[in-house]
Amino acid sequence: MNELTGHAWLLPSVSLWRREVVRFLRQRGRVVGALGTPVVFWLLIGSGLRNSFRLPNMDQSINYLEYSFPGMLALIVLFTAIFATISIIEDRREGFMQAVLAAPVSRTAIVLGKVFGSTTLAVGQALVFLLLIPLTGIHVTLAGIILAVAALTVMAIGLSAVGVLIAWPMDSIQGFHAIMNLVLMPMWLLSGAFFPASGASSWMGWIMAINPLTYGVATLRHALYMGQELPGSQYPAPMMSWLVSCAFSVTAIAVAQRMISRKA
């Protein structure tokens, strides 16, 4: 007989987590797309706007490749969270998720498996992207890299949990595309990844101030420029950024967990 007692969650969530990573590595298209897309975006946009972009209150122009680099790391995290979201919809449609739901597994394990699986992928890809940092002119320290990985992890947990929240009640990928274009992409565009709040119109500045991703991107900037002066001064302070980012991720996971635990 089975010797299952209590709420088993650690083993199932690790198993679900590992599945996410194994699946990713076996889909060559996904690996190439995930790594290639941000690189191409960054090189095209960064080189295109190279000399047209100037930070407000600064005399000389900043190399846009440099300005947009932290934002591209955030974009990698966002793309991975989007993939995680789509995979939830697929898992539900194909029946894989049914088998998990019919097993004596706590719902928390399902959320944790998905979120940490997606976080692992996001941070892994971001690390590969970080290899391009010599092209930007940012002089990053080892401590800065470690702090950046921590910042990416917090951000990835938050965005993946939001992905779970969005995907769970949804039954088609078509519906998801609308949410992606209306919510997730604007969230990134208005995070300071693309342009700073100080140069935008004031209503947009307000949206950027309440966008949690603004603080996530700021934690990344602070990490990458650790011990140096940040170009421009329009970012939330380090302490504030970390607090908001962590609070956002914890809240997102808690809400996702509650949503999945609710009986169908």
Binding site: N2, E3, L4, A8, L11, P12, V14, S15, L16, R19, V22, A99, V100, A103, P104, V105
Partner: peptide, 13 residues
């Protein structure tokens, strides 16, 4: 791998 994953869901390892 599928079977192993299923086992994990049921607390086997």
């Amino acid at each position: 791998e599928n079977l192993t994953h299923q086992g994990h869901l049921y607390g086997l390892k």
